[in-house]
């Protein structure tokens, strides 16, 4: 209800659910986004330990947050560059989605399609992955204009520092 989608936004949601349309949008968005990459250099580090000893963290731009946390700002057409911390041991029923720029009705039914915390908990219990970080991170992946700078200069580095402080070896990123 708090998303208050207009009919135009609902129509856009339906159109972008068509894979070919989504790729066309991606191509257009790529032209705008390339300018935000500093020098073309891509950071890269190999995992230095077995996966069964590594600690993972989930990061999503699907608008995931706890029901008890403030929802992402749907009133600013440039989006919301803030993030929400999701505790690893949270009851999945406490997680909700605020993001009006994609159709998340399927994700509302099964959170795993955008934020697979349940699967990763299971992989830890199986011994496939060593452990999970105590906190994971939800962003809202519709960010435009000056707010891109807020994301790249403030909030994303904040999250990177928290991942480092938590001893995270790898991050698993899911878009929406």
């Amino acid at each position: 209800m708090r998303e208050n989608k207009s009919w135009v936004e609902k129509l856009a949601n339906r159109l972008y659910a068509i894979p070919s349309v989504a790729q066309f949008w991606a191509s257009r968005a790529a032209q705008r986004s390339a300018q935000f990459v500093d020098d073309g250099a891509i950071p890269f580090a190999r995992l230095t330990k077995p996966l069964s000893a590594a600690r993972g963290a989930l990061i999503t731009t699907a608008g995931v947050h706890l029901s008890s946390q403030p929802p992402f700002d749907m009133t600013n057409s440039d989006g919301d560059p803030t993030y929400r911390e999701i505790p690893v041991d949270v009851a999945l029923e406490e997680i909700t989605i605020t993001h009006k720029y994609y159709d998340h009705r399927d994700a509302d039914v099964d959170l795993n399609i955008v934020f697979p915390l349940a699967h990763f908990r299971d992989l830890v219990s199986q011994g496939v992955i060593g452990s999970l970080a105590t906190r994971h991170f939800g962003f809202m992946g519709h960010i435009e204009g000056d707010l891109v700078t807020t994301l790249t200069r403030r909030t994303a580095p904040e999250v990177a520092a928290k991942l480092r402080a938590d001893g995270v070896d790898f991050a698993f990123l899911t878009p929406a």
């Binding site: 989504a22 191509s27 790529a30 986004s33 790898f170 990123l173 899911t174 878009p175």
Partner: peptide, 15 residues
Amino acid sequence: MSISIARDLTDAVGV
């Protein structure tokens, strides 16, 4: 590591 459903965009931002 990331999942991508928008290939050109993923390519542009350097994942």
